[in-house]
Amino acid sequence: MSPQQHIINHLFEFFEFISKKNSATHHKEKGFKGISHLNSSWPNFIYNIDLNQITTSDLATKITNKQLPQHLILTAEQVDEHENELTTNGFTPIAEWSCLELDKTEFKTTNNQQLTIKKITSKEDLKDWTTVASSGFGTLENSIFENCFNNKSVEFYGGYTNGKLVATALLFHHNNTTGIYHVVTLPEERGKGFGSELFTFCEHKALKNGADRVIAQSTTEGLNAWLNTGMKLYGNFYLFCLNKSKQ
């Protein structure tokens, strides 16, 4: 399996873990899987899509009929191969993400120690964590994370300055790979290196925990910062939304 596929699969495992803890609806049909949460905007995705087994037209029909969530995840290769069908059926890309894996030979610990980094251990602190994470990803439901709290597969971390939570991160451990998710810095605190400091801490923590591989996904905005911590780029994937469903 390519590093890119491994990184994307880890994300899918993360979605499935979250959804199992939150009684979400799982869709599994030939050519795709999907997750729908009734009371949360995240995670709601169609994923693991094989466009040789399901057409974009069929996906569009199912979405329009509200049988599936609005968003789907496709690799850059799938987008290139199926661009015409995606366009014809009303799919619009709304976000681009990069697949990253830590190159252990390039990993360096940081001298930047502006933050006090703490593991989130109380539900009260988790509420603050969710509020800060929401500032980067749109509103996230606290209950989604509360239902995963105290599970050995997930660790929540917060970066504090002057006692204020300014940055968040989540580690998800699966099959000897640790994924670094939900790395967010409060908008007014960005540009100070807090995100990189917390991200580097998480890389270090994952290796210390014994992870064979450390992976992440990044938006275009965060990419350079994560590459500077020793991450290596393994291609992109895209989030699409159907634009016909409101018509």
Binding site: T92, I94, N243, S245, K246
Partner: peptide
Amino acid sequence: WDSLNHAIFIG
């Protein structure tokens, strides 16, 4: 102006 409306706007 969320993701769904962005997709509709672009269309």
